[in-house]
């Protein structure tokens, strides 16, 4: 495992824990898209079914379990424990527009036509667009709390570092997985506009608000 991959995983973990802590400490999930969080829970579940079939390393297994556990906890906080604070009126992205096309694509473009492999492929495609309900929510309300911005930034950094990891692996190991790379590129591009706002506003101490 190279440094990019490891830092990418840590950044992903940081994002997930940051969101959990934010909701828990503030006792509120205002400004957070429950739909994006449900999509991420679906992504982890579909991808990590190989926990039962394929052992890779203790690190790999632990991270997968933590990601899944945190992800489901977040969904539970939003839709049950702090349901009263959930901003459903602004969380109006139609997730079927993401789930249906990515599911169809997973059936058409995959490495191997087996149930686990199709689910893995579906999770890769779905992850690349799963943040859209959250970004849509931010654009609809015109702003995001600073901690939400940090969450989105860490999440964007994660896939960006994975791109460097894939360049590294291609160069030194001759390894490449085109499905993951293309989806990862799409995912990273979706964050670019946000990266710009984050660097020009949030890092200068301002709250992230979009021009009217």
């Amino acid at each position: 495992m190279n440094l990019f991959r490891f830092l990418g995983d840590l950044s992903h973990l940081l994002a997930i824990i940051l969101l959990l802590l934010k909701i828990w400490k503030s006792r509120s999930c205002a400004g957070i898209s429950g739909k994006s969080q449900v999509l991420f829970a679906v992504v982890f579940t579909a991808r990590y079914l190989d926990l039962f079939t394929n052992y890779i390393s203790l690190y790999n297994t632990c991270m997968k379990v933590v990601y899944i556990a945190c992800s489901f906890t977040t969904v539970w906080l939003i839709y049950s424990k702090f349901k009263a604070t959930y901003d459903g009126n602004h969380d109006t992205f139609r997730v079927e527009f993401l789930v249906v096309p990515t599911a169809i694509l997973a059936f058409l473009v995959n490495h191997d036509f087996t149930p686990l492999e199709i689910l893995w492929t579906f999770s890769i495609y779905l992850e690349s667009v799963a943040i859209l309900p959250q970004l849509f929510m931010v654009s609809k309300t015109g702003e995001a709390e600073t901690i939400t911005s940090h969450y989105l930034f860490a999440l964007g950094v994660y896939r960006t570092l994975y791109l460097f990891n894939w360049i590294w692996r291609y160069h030194f190991e001759g390894f490449f997985d085109l499905i993951a790379i293309v989806a990862g590129l799409v995912q990273t591009v979706l964050y670019c506009d946000f990266f710009y706002l984050y660097i020009t506003k949030v890092l200068k101490g301002k709250k992230l608000s979009l021009p009217a």
Partner: peptide, 10 residues
Amino acid sequence: VEPSAGHDEL
């Protein structure tokens, strides 16, 4: 690319 070998990334 050898999918049968499993996916070692997260």
